[in-house]
Design a binder for these strands. Structure first.
Lengths: 184, 184
DNA sequence: GTCTATATACAGATAGAC
DNA sequence: GTCTATCTGTATATAGAC
């Protein structure tokens, strides 16, 4: 951990993905990082500043994971499975996607942070459309690719939401199978 | 509103579906119902008791809506669209599914209430399997119906999660189109 | 059933010393 | 940067009067 700010963000991101932003207090966060809550306010004056930094960091890390998939050779099915693997990994660690969790809490977010959530979902959609293009549907590939990308992202978000309290993998396995069946 | 208990549950359910259980205080709830927070404790001693009652009521109402769909004639596509309409209605009212919201907050739920969430998702899955049976897939109808039901439910939960802060309908429309395309 | 009053704990946030 | 100390408000929950 190179800086205290980064340590705080790492701890906070895990906590939010587990229990939500509303459940995370500056005191709990400070304790986990070995400092006092007033010192957390030094880095993030208000809670919305913390949320903003968490989303920015999450988008950046997510983009890097997509670039890592792009760097390897792989057919569309394999690339989709690696994309789905990001969500499977969250489920195995009893976490949600940060932006999925914050979307559930979106009524508490300011407009700027809501817009960042949209940025995240657009990033995921655009990347998946690139994967699915020319490999989905029958008549209009582009429209079908967009439709399938949106279905896949919604399905993955919903699947880890449902499977987590269940402690199963029923939803995410079904989603993967369904999407793979629509690729050719 | 026939009883104060029912009024409290109605108000609480809307609040939870909008902002989550953690964001709802007994004081806010009491104020909305015109009583004091100590009186809310008369009906629901602890917050977990309130959560339990909300899930029970939600499952009951959801079951009634499924029975209403069953009561009308309709082909599988139409029945699925009416099922999806339950989630579209939530999205239009800026709400999530109660059990979807609580699933996001599941780390704060006791085991009994987590089990109730599983009951809800099983209810939805079993009903959709009945709709899809003999109308999905190609080789093994039952397996395909289960897979498609799980995909549809995860997709609907995720779609309203994503579309709500976006104030769009992109995800839910894509999900509906994808599922309809898999029915014959 | 609903109230007042209260207990205890925790929330976000700030001032100012070091 | 981190601290102590504090402000103000809110949280869940309970006791006991009416």
């Amino acid at each position: 951990m190179s800086t205290k700010r980064e340590e705080l963000q790492t701890v906070a991101s895990e906590a939010v993905r587990s229990s939500g932003l509303h459940s995370l207090s500056f005191r709990t966060l400070a304790h986990a990082a070995g400092i006092k809550s007033s010192s957390v306010h030094y880095y993030f004056p208000e809670k919305s500043d913390l949320a903003s930094a968490l989303i920015d960091q999450y988008i950046q890390e997510f983009r890097h994971r997509l670039e890592a998939i792009d760097a390897d050779a792989g057919d569309p099915k394999n690339r989709f499975l690696r994309f789905a693997g990001i969500f499977e990994e969250a489920l195995e660690n009893d976490r949600l996607c940060l932006c999925g969790m914050l979307a559930a809490e979106s009524s508490d977010l300011n407009d700027e942070n809501k817009a960042k959530l949209t940025d995240f979902f657009n990033l995921a959609e655009d990347w998946l459309v690139g994967v699915f293009k020319d490999h989905s549907g029958s008549h209009n590939n582009e429209i079908d690719a967009i439709k399938l990308a949106r279905t896949a992202i919604a399905g993955l978000q919903g699947a880890i939401l449902i499977d987590r309290p269940n402690r199963e993998r029923r939803s995410i396995e079904a989603l993967k199978t369904t999407v793979l069946g629509l690729l050719h």
